[in-house]
């Protein structure tokens, strides 16, 4: 075995390196280059250097606006629903049931989001919840193809991803802190606000970040439950690349999406640092 350690390393890394170069870096570079190009007569790309595509971005303002309202709203709604559940799992449930209940939260996340979103067509469609509401006297409630439907789909799809990090943070929490607070006569709600909530912030931030990032690129949920009325940047991208074949403009929209995402994530991380979330927790993201 005359092979040196560094040569062995180089050999081990070569396939992965080539893969990243060919399937990640090269394609991303192409998107960047195309976004400064012009559209050719037959669709696709014609070489050039122009900022026209970026200047044209306001044409897709509605898609960006929808994404930037429904993604944070969806993240917030998931958070509000996930937190009590994570708290219940971390603090209240007996260890015997904990693992099983936790796995039950995660399982849906790893099954097809396409089929899970599709399921809501039944529940929100005419024969589902609106029919129940009609029986209760609320006639003519339309749910499917509304922003509300998309929001429900988002919460349904990404709830597991939110529960898990919060659960992990709450699980780590030193119970003696709460006991000490109780001994000192702190009412439970104040102990929660002053101890539990701040100490669970890393989990809250990680979960929100994960969900938010995934929501920014969402296409399926708005297209299945929004019925073309509530569209995200993802829907605009599908339209630009697969229907109108406007590659340069589509590339500019994609670059815009990534930039907006990075800006929001950057601002968020800075806010997170002010909450005193250390680098260890950021690594989780």
């Amino acid at each position: 075995m005359a092979m040196t350690r560094s040569r062995a390393r180089a050999l081990l890394l070569t396939p992965a390196g080539l893969w990243y170069a060919a399937m990640l870096l090269m394609p991303l570079a192409v998107v960047l280059i195309f976004s400064f190009g012009e559209r050719s007569q037959i669709g696709g790309y014609a070489p050039g250097f122009t900022l026209e595509q970026y200047a044209n971005l306001p044409a897709r303002f509605a898609a960006f606006r929808n994404t930037l309202t429904l993604a944070p709203l969806g993240t917030l709604a998931s958070l509000l629903i996930a937190y009590p559940l994570a708290y219940y799992l971390a603090v209240k449930v007996s260890p015997k049931w904990k693992t099983m209940l936790l796995v039950l939260v995660i399982v849906p996340f790893w099954t097809s989001i396409l089929i899970r979103s599709y399921a809501w067509i039944f529940l929100l469609g005419g024969k589902g919840i609106p029919a129940l509401l009609a029986m209760a006297g609320l006639e003519d409630v339309r749910l499917l193809n509304t922003p509300f439907a998309v929001l429900v789909g988002i919460v349904y799809g990404y709830l597991p991803l939110m529960v898990f990090p919060i659960y992990v943070a709450l699980e780590k929490l030193d119970k003696r802190l709460l006991e000490a607070a109780a001994d000192l006569g702190t009412p439970p709600w104040r102990a929660f606000v002053q101890i539990t909530l701040p100490l669970s912030m890393p989990g809250v931030l990680t979960g929100s970040m994960l969900v938010f990032i995934l929501l920014m690129g969402e296409f399926l949920i708005p297209s299945i439950l929004g019925g073309g009325k509530v569209f995200f940047v993802g829907n605009a991208l599908v339209d630009l690349f697969l229907q109108s074949r406007n590659w340069p403009f589509g590339s500019a929209v994609a670059v815009g999406l990534v930039v907006v995402m990075l800006v929001v994530v950057g601002l968020y991380t800075r806010a997170a640092k002010r909450f005193g979330v250390g680098r260890d927790d950021a690594a989780l993201m």
Partner: peptide, 24 residues
């Protein structure tokens, strides 16, 4: 490599999809 792994995980799937499409 750490950066490549991070980018691959963070970039939305839809962007990976279109990038791969037009590049290939």
């Amino acid at each position: 490599f750490d950066l490549a792994v991070q980018i691959a995980v963070m970039i939305p799937g839809i962007v990976i999809g279109i990038a791969t499409l037009i590049a290939l």
